[in-house]
Nucleic acid binder design. Sequence first.
DNA 1: CCCCAGGCGGTTG
DNA 2: CAACCGCCTGGG
Length: 279
Amino acid sequence: MIEIFNDNWEKLCSSYELDLIKTFECGQCFRWNADNCGVYSGVVRGHFAKIKNENCDVLIKSSNNDIEFWKNYFDLNSDYELAHNQMRKEEYLKKSVEFGRGIRILKQEAWETLCSFIVSQCNNIPRIKKIIRSLCELFGEKKQFEEDFYYTFPSAGSVFKLNSDELGRIKAGYRAAYIMSAAEAVSSGNINLDYLKILNYNDAKKKLMDINGVGEKVANCVLLFGLNKTEAFPEDVWIKKALKEKLSPDFDPKSLGEYAGLAQQYIFYTIREENRIKS
DNA sequence: CCCCAGGCGGTTG
DNA sequence: CAACCGCCTGGG
């Protein structure tokens, strides 16, 4: 039997359903990087993957070789068309849907998401990525898949065991203390992230905000990207700008219910793109 | 060199 | 309550 598809690349979905650039560059994740051919590499829950476009398909090759795992991660079992229909009433949101189509809300590992968005505060994206890469390379587990070496995200327990000199090596600055308080809360069981997934949005948010260094914005990012609370609507400076300058004054994200999080990503992507094109 | 970045916690009016 | 300020660090 002759292998038709070489190298174990497998079709994940169509490029229409998942736009890799938009999804990876819209600020929800920090560990996917493209090579100069546009092939992205990333690590999710200890599994390594390469992912690329070919013709009109998205192809993936991974260390666990489990297509359902990746479909779940890329939220490909959700029907976004239902959400889009709810978004057409508001003019700027309607534009954002067309502009941002192809973005998926990634179902990320909760502890990694918590740690990453603590690092993100008052920081720029290249530096956020650098700090997280250091954290993984210094304290994660080194693994190999074919010719690629990669690092897992260190557990809350292993981060909590670090002393201040060790944690200082990732150069997170004043956020290091916040990372430590999150690591303590999670590794001690004081906060059980899996349990937060089954709590309602408000209760889960309250628990997250008990962590020193987690405020409204970081909590909402963790709820949306790490705990599957799709009604979360994180308001950063860009979203605040859109609310002030682009969306109508009576627009209320709560009216979108479970679709608010997706709308937030579309708006975020759109206003950033508008700003990038302008400058 | 300066400016400030996808916030937070603490203090003040 | 809102407004402000300091915080580590390094990218631009």
